[in-house]
Amino acid sequence: MRKSVIAALGVLVMAGPVAAQDIVLDELRAGVFYHSAYNGFLPTGDNWDFSSLEDVKFSALFSSPDLEAFRWIGSPRPEIGATLNFNGRENLLHANLNWQIPVFDTPIYLELGFGAAVTDGALSGAASPARNFGCSFNFYDAAGIGANVGENMTVTLRYEHISNLDLCPPNQGLSNFGLMVGFKF
């Protein structure tokens, strides 16, 4: 419990500077994810494991701040979220920037995210299937493909990964995969 409180405070501290700008809640998402669905960083090859549908994910996406720096990098939307495991395994909280790229003149979009995450997983000494993270703070990246199903609804197939990039070994990382439904405001 103490680790979860520290992790939540960490995400709030990271999100503080963004919250100070004139941004508003743009979209809320919720979905189900396969826990540790891929054993690696980039989701390629045959290392997939779809046996652990045990995560629930929530995300809040905000409008891009009206700042020149944000326009210069493509006007990403700030995002905060959590992936919660209901089988006693690792949970994570993340704060990141989310780029949504339309696919031509269709309702389909591609999505990329990059930021930071905190986890309550073991730092070392955990037995499989638990992961050893080396440190609680990690890099967060996400990729997805989605569609605007209606004026106020989205559906996104999403892959997320956390890792410390070998800054504090061991670095087993965590890769989750799932489907989210979003409601836009």
Rank of each mutant, 00 (worst) to 15 (best):
A20T: 12
A20E: 13
D22G: 04
I23M: 07
V24Q: 15
A30I: 13
A30S: 14
V32I: 10
S36P: 03
S36A: 10
Y38G: 05
P43H: 07
T44Y: 10
G45F: 10
D46G: 14
D46N: 15
F50N: 09
S51Q: 11
S52I: 00
S52C: 06
V56N: 03
K57N: 15
K57E: 15
A60K: 06
S63M: 08
S63V: 08
S64P: 05
P65W: 01
P65L: 05
P65E: 03
D66P: 06
D66G: 09
L67K: 15
L67F: 06
L67D: 13
F70A: 13
R71D: 14
R71S: 13
W72E: 15
I73R: 09
I73P: 00
G74K: 07
G74N: 04
S75N: 09
P76T: 11
R77K: 11
L84A: 12
L84E: 12
F86P: 02
N87I: 00
R89T: 02
N91R: 01
L92H: 07
L92S: 06
L92A: 03
L93V: 13
L93M: 12
A95R: 04
L97V: 03
I101V: 15
I101K: 10
F104P: 11
D105E: 12
D105S: 10
D105Q: 11
T106W: 03
P107I: 04
Y109E: 03
L110I: 04
L110W: 08
L110H: 06
E111W: 09
F114C: 07
G115C: 07
A117F: 04
A117K: 01
V118C: 07
V118T: 14
T119Y: 06
L123Y: 06
L123P: 01
S124T: 14
G125I: 09
A126W: 07
S128V: 12
S128R: 15
P129W: 01
A130P: 03
R131I: 00
R131V: 00
N132V: 01
N132D: 07
F133V: 00
F133G: 05
G134I: 01
F137C: 09
F139K: 08
F139M: 10
Y140C: 02
Y140G: 00
D141G: 12
G144Q: 04
G144Y: 08
I145Y: 11
I145W: 11
I145T: 10
